[in-house]
């Protein structure tokens, strides 16, 4: 048994230590907001926070997440209140199919925590998640609406 802390809740899970964290979150624990897109850390659909750092969970052995604070998309809202990124996503109606957006929101949340006034250059350099619907223009506008207030 491995002991994980996800969104502040403890979970004991039966999984091989080298199982990617993504599959433990999705299949073993049953939280499906974190998505599988590529399995090789290219697309970012599986992005979660490990101690606040955006991490692609498809490439992280679950054993390395033991003892860390894991946050998933389900854990961003506090007492029913969405975080600023989620709210900006709603205000700008960002998602199309929406499949990549959990990972996108996790990546942007971590970026803005690190750089509240992230510039376009910061966004271009650090936001490497793939959106096949091409919502990038709305994503940028949504981020700008947050950085303008920071």
């Amino acid at each position: 048994m491995l002991h994980l802390t996800i969104n502040g809740t403890s979970h004991d899970v039966d999984a091989e230590p080298d199982t990617p964290l993504l599959w433990v979150i999705r299949d073993t624990i049953g939280m499906t907001g974190t998505k599988y897109g590529c399995g090789i850390q290219q697309c970012g659909a599986c992005t979660v926070h490990i101690d606040g750092v955006a991490t692609r969970s498809c490439g992280m052995p679950v054993s390395l997440a033991v003892g860390k604070q894991i946050t998933t998309i389900e854990g961003l809202a506090q007492n029913g209140t969405l975080n600023a990124v989620q709210q900006a996503w709603i205000d700008h109606d960002v998602p199309q199919c929406g499949y990549c957006q959990s990972g996108m929101i996790m990546a942007v949340t971590a970026l803005l925590k690190k750089k509240p006034k992230a510039t376009d250059a910061d966004i271009d350099r650090e936001l490497t998640n793939i959106c096949r619907c091409g919502t990038y223009q709305q994503i940028r506008a949504a981020i700008h609406s947050i950085t303008a207030k920071a």
Binding site: T34, Q86, I90, D93, P95, G98
Partner: peptide
């Protein structure tokens, strides 16, 4: 008008086939 499916899609609540 705003899309009806946006709020769920910002919270990981939308159910796709894989879910």
């Amino acid at each position: 008008l705003k899309r009806l499916d946006t709020p769920d899609k910002t919270q990981g609540k939308t159910i796709y086939g894989i879910d």
